[in-house]
Design a binder for these strands. Structure first.
Length: 447
RNA sequence: GCCGCUAUCGUCUAGGGGACUAGGACGCCGCCCUCUCACGGCGGAAACCCGGGUUCGAAUCCCGGUAGCGGUACCA
């Protein structure tokens, strides 16, 4: 088995393209086949080094590897010219000067459902001769068969007047030459497939196995784009998702095993993935479910591992202690800093929280009581911190939160943080007391 | 317009003639846990596009309609 993944280098790797890459990868890796990467761009306008590097980068981040060197398509290779000549000589193709207007005029005369047939003008673009009778059947692993009657098919242009070849010709020849056995790509290519099959047939070449994946849409059913949030692999990485979670989520978008598992490791995915179990309906990309799944993966990570990833993501260091008290509260890597930033950069400035929790209803008095208890806590460990604060709660006869929240706002600046005992213990005695003093000082000065 | 593909809870899906009172997951709602926010636990609402046919029996097979998507480039 030889599988190929052929992204078009339009820039970032779109989420749909990433899923196609994943399915190709799962198919090849699961069957022990070979997976080649080909950058598909016959006119070479889009495959700038930057665009190509973005594709590689996205694939590497997803940890989807390929075999051998990536291949770059060419519109003017000697091989393409040679095959074109052969088709011309054998009468499978002809040169025609017919324009798009000519095609329209033809259909007005013969009916809209009638495929265009040109005449051999001896020059102009090269068109493939579609047989007058019969049909071309695409055997698709996912859809069964799609039948295209030849009378409905236009003679497709396969090379421009200047001799450069077009996609539907190039892709068929390139797949043939590379010995590709399995073509897995988006459903938008299904209607192109008969053209490619006809090229192969004119060449007397065998057909690969096809599988056309349903398309991916945005949450509202329209084409997935930036305005829906994350639309590319780059966006996903920036939003703080884990590659293993993205792989898991994407695999379940259009594919489902009979056992209904939701969290599936990549190893299991490789083992269980079956191309013929891919769904036929288009799927919507729902970032909420990805967030949930990412949280599951995040929580299952070893804290040291999570800290490493967070450090790479944020560019900061020394995060492990904070990670260990915040891990359960994160869904993405991006959630960490808003939650734990106060441990490193001082309390946040949430005036509303301060007013409501410390400045009102005796919050300051309870905070002062907590300060005194904390000052006496010995040693400065989570257990002693908890004992000290709970003792204050008991002595004052108030609800726990009436003591804990003022402390939280004093050290974190906001009402949301990791557990209060862990946070205080991690912050240290000196820093904690000084932040409480600052909050209390504020209270006095504001009267 | 023409050609092609598709149609199960809001979303992703399981199901492939009787096991369907249609299962799971996200999301949503309620309760529990609880120092905030989360996590977790328990429970709930929520779907077979419509119409014909085949059959003892249809979510499942067939036909038609409708809708969505894709293609219809000297783009990829």
């Amino acid at each position: 088995m030889k599988v190929r993944f052929a992204p078009s280098p339009t820039g970032a790797l779109h989420v749909g393209g990433a899923r196609t890459a994943l399915f190709n990868w799962l198919l090849a890796r699961g069957a022990g086949g070979e997976l080649v990467l080909r950058i598909e761009d016959t006119d070479h306008e889009r495959s700038t080094p930057e665009n190509v590097e973005q594709i590689f980068d996205a694939l590497r981040w997803l940890d989807l590897d390929w075999d051998g060197e990536p291949v770059f398509q060419s519109a003017r290779s000697e091989r393409h010219r040679e095959v074109l000549e052969r088709l011309l000589e054998q009468g499978h193709a002809y040169r025609s000067t017919a324009t798009a207007q000519d095609v329209r005029a033809y259909k007005e005369r013969h009916g809209a459902e009638r495929g265009f047939r040109g005449e051999d003008d001896g020059d102009g673009a090269v068109r493939l001769s579609v047989p007058a009778e019969g049909e071309t059947v695409v055997n698709d692993e996912i859809r069964g068969t799609a039948t295209f009657k030849h009378e409905h098919l236009d003679d497709p242009v396969i090379a421009r007047a200047d001799g450069s070849v077009l996609y539907n010709f190039a892709v068929a020849v390139d797949d043939l030459d590379a010995g590709i056995t399995h073509v897995v790509r988006g459903e938008d290519h299904l209607s192109n497939t008969p053209k490619q099959l006809l090229v192969l047939e004119a060449l007397g070449a065998p057909q690969p196995v096809y599988a056309h994946l349903p398309l991916l849409h945005g949450p509202d059913g329209s084409k997935l784009s930036k305005r829906h949030g994350a639309a590319s692999v780059q966006d996903l990485r920036d939003a703080g998702y884990l590659p293993e979670a993205v792989r898991n989520y994407l695999a379940l978008l259009g594919w489902g095993d009979e056992d209904d598992e939701t969290i599936i490791s990549t190893e299991d995915l490789v083992q269980r993935f079956r191309i013929d179990r891919v769904s036929r309906n288009p799927a919507r990309f729902d970032e909420r479910k990805l967030r949930w799944m990412n949280g599951r993966y995040l929580r299952s990570l070893d804290p040291a591992d999570l800290a490493r990833r967070l450090e790479a993501y944020s560019g900061r260091t020394g995060l492990e202690a904070a990670v260990s008290i915040a891990q359960d509260k994160l869904q993405t890597l991006a959630d960490f800093w808003p939650l734990c930033g106060f441990l490193f950069d001082g309390p946040a400035q949430d005036a509303e929280a301060y007013q409501r929790v410390i400045a009102a209803d005796g919050g300051g008095d309870r905070l002062a009581a907590a300060r005194a208890a904390l000052e006496a806590a010995q040693p400065w460990e989570e257990e002693q911190v908890e004992a000290a604060l709970r003792e204050v709660v008991e002595r004052l006869g108030v609800k726990p939160k009436e003591v804990f929240q003022p402390v939280r706002v004093a050290i974190a600046g906001t009402t949301v943080s990791p557990g209060i005992f862990e946070s205080v213990a991690l912050l240290g005695r000196e820093e904690t007391l000084s932040r409480i003093d600052a909050a209390l000082g504020n209270l006095r000065s504001s009267g």
